[in-house]
Structures are given as structure tokens and as C-alpha cells.
Amino acid sequence: MAIEVRIPTILRSHTGGAKVVEGAGDTLSDLFADLDSRYPGLRGRLITEDGALHRFVNVYVNDEDVRFTGALETKLSDGDSVTVLPAVAGGASVG
């Protein structure tokens, strides 16, 4: 089953420059594992060593922020569209 995944500029070095790639999986976690088999290193930019979604990466499934839909356990179906955007964040605080 095909799921369209939109890749932000900063991660396109992992996809040979491709802006949109296709993957498969029943959950977001499966999808990232599938993508990593073809685009090595991509998963490591999205998921921490503890296996959680990076705090400063936004992932959306069909316009919904996955933080509110089960994070990496979010269920996927054929034809879903996944968008990855690095959060735009910062500030004067140190740390």
C-alpha cells in the first residue's frame, strides 16, 4: 500500500533530493522503518534513540498533527498523505 510522504529541504539529502517519496506501513512507526530501508539515516532524523518522535519535528497525517493522534502509533491507510516539517523554534533561553 502506498503512502505519500513529503520531505522537507533539510532531509532531502537522505532521499537523493526527492521532495515526495512513497512508503508503506500500518503505522507511522512502520512507515519510517520502511523508508529507512531505502533512505538510510532518515529514520534517525525523525526518531530519538529512545524511540520517540523528535520534539522539534512535526509530522502530519492528512493535515493532523500526529502528536494528537497517537504519535508513532498513528494508524495509516492506503492513500494517506504524510508531511514532515522541522519545527521552527528557538528563543533567548539557554538550554
Partner: peptide, 14 residues
Amino acid sequence: RSTTFYRFDSMEQL
């Protein structure tokens, strides 16, 4: 909404 931190609202950013 902080005096020392900012982050774009994720839905607005999308």
C-alpha cells in the same frame, strides 16, 4: 507565548 522561547504553531505552520 513565552518571554524566552518561540515555536510556530504546528497547524499554522502546516
